[in-house]
């Protein structure tokens, strides 16, 4: 039943991360808060994908699909931010 054990262990790790993210949100503020909470969410998602969704048993191709979706989401968010992060602080009088 070692497979079951792995799954339960993954679940306990997930629960720990849940406590961590709630706790961190009280300690940290500003950009660090969002960076930490997103990092923890990514770690949780990785655990779910890797163990619960059996990505570790799948072929490289399927892993590529999972990573690809994340990468494309990053394109959307990062390239949108090239606009929002470089607009002058208040809506852009220099525009």
């Amino acid at each position: 039943m070692s497979a079951t054990r792995t799954l339960v262990l993954a679940w306990s790790a997930l629960m720990c991360l849940l406590f961590a993210t709630v706790g961190a949100s009280f300690v940290l503020t500003g950009p660090w808060s969002i960076v930490t909470s997103l990092a923890i969410a990514l770690a949780k998602a990785a655990l779910i994908f890797w163990f619960f969704m059996h990505l570790r048993e799948e072929a490289g191709l399927v892993r590529l699909v999972a990573i690809g979706a994340g990468a494309w989401l990053l394109i959307l968010i990062l390239l949108s931010m090239t606009d929002y992060a470089t607009r002058p602080a208040l809506g852009g009088m220099t525009n």
Partner: peptide, 11 residues
Amino acid sequence: AGQSMYASAVF
């Protein structure tokens, strides 16, 4: 459209 100048240069 009112996009930031820097974003425009990148795109």
